[in-house]
Design a protein around this nucleic acid. Structure first.
Lengths: 336, 336
DNA sequence: TTGAAAGCGCTAACAC
DNA sequence: GTGTTAGCGCTTTCAA
């Protein structure tokens, strides 16, 4: 492989001039630029990114670290959307994305530390999880760069893009009530995942009921675990305990699909016996049930903004105020 | 950030000794190792991966390049499975994965070249696509390392992991015939994607029909484009042209779900009016219709083996004979 | 078992 | 507008 020096020699210029032709071409006369360029072509020269990284002290690579094991991550439509958002923004801005989902969840913190401290990446986009608060704390002190997809500790003010589902769930419940439903189930987010301030679904649900003068009932709310199976079981229990159940709000797409299957297995029919509102409205999945009204979870936008924010964090060397995106409610199809 | 030299100075050893403690600890006496280790801890020293990369001439990063635009890639369950397979294998072997899906398809070749020639990655896992054959050709000559997920040119003998759907489709058709079906539709792979030797579905289908003495009919075979919408439209046309249609084989999951929706929209019922065999049997999606028999596409295994192969290619500096994985047929649920 | 010196390929200062 | 020099932080001969 030809090096910068080979080019310089053959073009009869200094190494720095070659470097300039590559990195700041308008600071070189057209003549020398042409000469150097032709030698570059002739030698099939390609700048060595590693050497440049060493000198520049940055790699133009952003790490995307997910703490739930690869089988979960690559099968979760939400994460794919966040990843897609981050990817789209960062690649158009000249960054690469390094994706890391430790096989064992417990390796996550090591992995984050390794990536960042070994200088493999210029910064990381992180998922909240147990222990990440300490990592983030350390990063803050040592000026390593991160942005989190959601809150990592109670009073986090900066470097996060969070999503608030309350407005979406509120509007969904409100809508169902306006259609005459009184027994509305909620398949809620799991409580055993690490998520701060995440009673957002419940809050929206409760507020809507309250405003309509409907009493809140414990046995109309069950948790899923974000999976198909979790949604399936949650619906079964809901129906078991509430024979009058006439509508269900699901807080994520995979759980909605589980619930839909449970509906069918119970011999019921959606849009006739029961109304189901699905969870994420992600393009990857919502087309499977395009007739369902849905809470729109702006995961793609979240990923995109996280990409933008990590760039800004790196550029400025400063912390950036966190951003919260609101979910919306999308009405579709024929409800009762 | 502390450097190797800082550690060496404080531990009163040479830089090389520190390097040894990190990279080949058993070639250092226990005593010095302990001393050095404690200094490493004390200074919170982390080796700089970039500097090591520059010297070692490798980054321990593998590129995963997909040529279909990010909106396609991150929404295709097959690609996610391949990515997951490659990721699982490579991360446990100490490699990182850099994922790259150029926003514009036409940038793909540049992207591959850039990643490899700039030495950002030690090797790449590639998707076949228009023009990749030339890239691969050049890589062969210049000893850059690659493995392809499928064949990239007619007589490719090495450095690929391919999947042959023929046995799966054959078995599926055979099974349907054994159940008494005579009008079996095939929603085939698209022909406008770059895929070599990819009449594998059709071959399996035709062979099964032939063995059963059933005439092949052109209007029982339609292409999808790997998407939900494609499957939907393909089924509609199939049913339109073949009122007697009683079974459909889909060559991918997303197309199967499109077909399933078209079935419902036509007022028909699966397992009563029509049998549907889904395409990929991927964990990400097949649970949505767990009662459907399916052609099992070993995408995860393909990704995993591609990961293994690229490692071997890099390690040996040699080309490796290609591998073809066979799809199987999985019987489930109650068919007619 | 350990150390000295050279250099991987590039870029940032600073000179001209 | 261009060139010279030094050095990013590590590893790799080779010698002790």
């Amino acid at each position: 492989m030809a090096t910068l020096y080979d080019v310089a020699r053959l073009a009869a210029v200094s190494p720095k001039t070659v470097s300039r032709v590559i990195n700041e071409p308008n600071r070189v006369t057209e003549e020398t630029r042409a000469r150097v360029t032709s030698v570059i072509k002739k030698l099939d020269y390609h700048p060595n990114a590693i050497a440049a990284s060493l000198k520049r002290q940055c790699t133009d690579i952003i790490g995307f670290v997910v703490p739930y094991g690869s089988d979960f991550v690559f099968q979760d439509p939400n994460m794919m959307e966040q990843l897609r958002g981050a990817h789209d923004l960062l690649t158009t801005e000249g960054y690469e994305i390094l994706i890391s989902a430790p096989v064992y969840k417990k390796d996550t913190l090591n992995e984050i530390n390794r990536l960042v401290k070994h200088r493999n990446v210029d910064g990381v986009i992180l998922y909240p999880s147990f222990g990440v608060d300490q990592v983030v704390q350390e990063f803050s002190e040592k000026n390593f760069y991160y942005v989190t997809l959601g809150l990592c500790f109670e009073d986090q003010q900066t470097n996060f893009i969070d999503i608030n589902l309350t407005p979406g769930v509120y509007a969904a419940a409100k809508y169902l009530i306006s259609l005459g439903h009184h027994h509305i189930g909620l398949i809620n987010k799991p409580s055993n995942f690490f998520m701060l301030g995440k009673d957002d679904c419940l809050r929206g649900y409760q507020t809507a009921l309250q405003e309509a003068g409907i009493d809140y009932q414990n046995n109309l709310v069950f948790e899923g675990d974000f999976t198909f199976e979790g949604g399936y079981q949650a619906f079964q229990r809901l129906k078991e305990l509430n024979p009058d159940l006439s509508a269900v709000i699901c807080s994520s797409d995979p759980m909605a699909y589980g619930a839909i299957k449970a509906v069918a297995d119970a011999g019921l029919k959606i849009n006739r016996d029961i109304d189901v509102i699905s969870g994420d409205n992600l393009p990857l999945t919502h087309k499977l049930y395009p007739y369902l009204s849905s809470i729109h979870n702006p995961s793609y936008e979240q990923g995109k903004q996280a990409g933008k924010m990590i760039m800004e964090v790196i550029r400025s060397g400063q912390k950036i105020p966190g951003v919260t995106l609101n979910a919306e409610f999308v009405i579709r199809g024929k409800l009762l």
